[in-house]
Design a protein around this nucleic acid. Structure first.
Lengths: 129, 129
DNA sequence: ATAGCTGCAAACGGTTTGCCTCACA
DNA sequence: TGTGAGGCAAACCGTTTGCAGCTAT
């Protein structure tokens, strides 16, 4: 564990979820290339995990955060739902297809209650440009 | 509907799911830029849909294919599961969070039966490099 | 002396943009 | 004659790689 790795891990822990770029920005003293290499390493040794929250960049977070990611197409908000939300799905996939669901690497898309069934868009930040 | 758009739509329909790049490769007579612009347009008018199957490129398919995508981390295979697989999840999300799930834009990750609980990897093509 | 890690800078792949030309209404 | 679509090429972003210097064995 080098200082840079501690820093990156610290940022991942403090940000909750963040893209490599956000992480790199948060630790300007560490080279972006090192951030990428470190994230890969931290993931290999099981300290962090990543998820694809849509479009481009993956989102990294501490491995101990076990929850399901729910993303609103309209406002871009990322909600964290309890992991047990997918228990039923997990059972069915296992039973019907022998497929072992990886809950951590899992994102659900749709429209949050705030944004309503359609049209109304309670803009938060990113959204669906 | 221009010839190029017909071509792109045709390829999406014949490939089932494909990345913009694969589509562009399949229609060399259409410029890649046009492929991207066309896919966006076809999605706007509801003829195609896209999903994020992991890593980088999104996967486009005909809008009428309504199923859930299940991707194996180990072998990279993409299984199509019946859309009703997520009915339970859909209900819970709606009930508990007022969140309207978009089943089409939805990918489940894990390990398929062929690849087993761990270790054993029935390599197919891509996988997790 | 060796192995591993970092920073830097260049390369990279896929995607997006600007601009100009062409076809058609 | 005006509007929009397509091609081309350059720009772009996030990511990856090669290399050289440094540090701690």
């Amino acid at each position: 564990m080098t200082p840079q790795r501690e820093l990156v891990l610290g940022v991942v822990r403090s940000l909750g979820h963040a893209t490599p770029e956000q992480i790199a920005d948060a630790v300007p003293e560490v080279d972006p290339a090192t951030v990428y290499r470190t994230l890969e390493l931290l993931e290999d040794i099981g300290l962090v995990r990543h998820t694809h929250l849509g479009h481009g960049a993956p989102s990294y977070r501490p491995a101990e955060d076990d929850h399901v990611h729910v993303v609103c197409h309209a406002c871009g908000r990322v909600l964290d739902a309890p992991a047990d939300l997918v228990d039923g799905l997990e059972q069915r996939l296992l039973g019907e297809q022998g497929f072992r669901l990886d809950r951590a690497h899992f994102t659900v898309f749709g429209r949050c209650g705030t944004c309503g069934p359609a049209g109304g868009t309670a803009q938060a930040s990113g959204g669906t440009p």
